[in-house]
Amino acid sequence: MPTLDLTGGYEPAFDFPIAQPEDPEMRESVSMWISDDQGRFGLPRFVIEAVAEEWNYRGIEANIAFPGGRVLIGAGGFRPDTPKRVEGQIVTLNAGPLTFEIVEPLRRWKMRFDGSAYESTVARQIEGVVGGTDRRVRISIDAIMACPPWTPGEQAAQQGDTSTALAVGAVGGHRHEQLFRCSGRVEIEGDDAIDFSGTGLRIRRTGVRNVGAFPGHCWQSALFPSGKAFGILAFPPRSDGTAAYSEAFLFDGEKKTYGKVIEAPWMTSIIPHGGPVGLVIETEAGLTRIDGITHDTTFIAKDKPMFGDWAPGGIVSGMALPFHQGGALYTWDGEEAYGMIERSLPVEQMTG
């Protein structure tokens, strides 16, 4: 069997952090979503967000969630350390307690977190409560990529259509995501340490980003034990009832097939654990149904900050839409896997 090309035709240089932004509206970001194979916890979005205007003061979000409703949140603004270089090439993006490191582009990354996160529950988050008792948290992750990268709109871009980049706000830059398998250790002050194996999604984004009047979204992805995988990004129907942008891919362990989302679990309500989040993808081969239920959940209520006390320009602002970031248990043709889910929707469209 031929070796899987994990680059998928992408240039490995896209993975490396930039030394200094040239555009004053430039953004630089790496994030990871991680699921424990045993379902004991999830890490639904660890991210560094750097903007050109405050290059030496960066935002982080570090979410830890448990299926019983417990969450720990590390968020805020931090200054970076001097980046690590290998043969002159920058291989780390860091901010305070969080560091992402490239071992081999498009093939292997590491993540480290060593700092504080406050205790809360998803129920308190839904009520809009922010803050809690701080815990010292140490996390180490070694991630081995298992699928070629995917960029929403890549199929259209290959045909010269850049409209998708406009739709998702990735104007003048680059974004790709890549599923991986990983091993690691989670240490929370007062708890027993957890050594684990799992799966996850890594996102690399650089460039100008402007999402404008965001209408809400549904973003889901998972890697299964057999090696097959899926990913979607969809926006809700427009106010006139017509379909909005959606794109999806299916991976059979060797190649990607592109499609669109026929059914998506729009966030009309939030059920943190056991809520239905199944979806249907249409490709040239027909319809594929993937069932899902929420497993571990974090939530950002409308008008509450995503990055704690950090925001570009120094003005802390709340989220325009409520945000659900979490893990889900997916079932596809009888095979199960934990994966990620992120959703948002205007609060007036939520029914419960």
Rank of each mutant, 00 (worst) to 15 (best):
I144E: 15
P152S: 03
G132W: 08
E127P: 01
G190W: 05
K110G: 05
T162I: 03
A157E: 15
S120N: 09
H174P: 01
D134T: 00
T133N: 08
I139M: 14
Q125N: 09
R124T: 01
E154Q: 15
C147P: 02
D161G: 06
M111K: 07
V168E: 09
G184M: 04
Q159E: 14
G173Q: 11
L166S: 13
V137D: 14
V171N: 08
P149Y: 07
S183I: 08
R124W: 08
I194A: 04
E127S: 10
D191Y: 07
F113N: 10
I126V: 15
S163I: 12
M111T: 13
G169A: 04
D142F: 02
G115N: 05
I194T: 11
Q159S: 08
F180M: 09
I141S: 11
T164W: 13
T121K: 08
F180L: 12
A156H: 13
R108S: 10
Y118R: 00
I194F: 00
G128A: 04
D134E: 15
G190L: 04
I188S: 10
Q155Y: 15
Q159K: 11
V168K: 00
A143V: 07
V130C: 04
E127F: 02
S140W: 15
I139W: 09
G172P: 09
F113T: 05
G160Q: 07
S120G: 08
D195P: 03
A146V: 01
S116G: 08
Y118E: 12
P149C: 03
R185T: 07
G160V: 01
G173T: 07
A157P: 04
A167S: 13
G172C: 09
A117Y: 03
A157V: 00
A123R: 10
E119F: 04
W109G: 05
Q125V: 00
G128D: 12
G160R: 13
Q159Y: 02
E119I: 01
V168C: 03
E187H: 10
I194R: 15
V168Y: 06
P152E: 04
C147S: 13
E154T: 02
A193P: 14
R181A: 12
M111W: 06
L179G: 10
D114F: 07
M111P: 02
S163C: 03
R124S: 05
T121W: 15
G131W: 11
D114A: 15
M111I: 11
I144P: 00
A165C: 02
P148Y: 06
R175C: 01
D161T: 09
C147V: 11
T164N: 04
A165V: 03
W109R: 15
I139Y: 13
E154W: 14
T164H: 05
W109K: 11
R181G: 05
S116E: 15
L179K: 04
E127T: 01
F113G: 06
L179Y: 01
V168L: 12
G173L: 06
V130L: 11
I139V: 14
I194V: 15
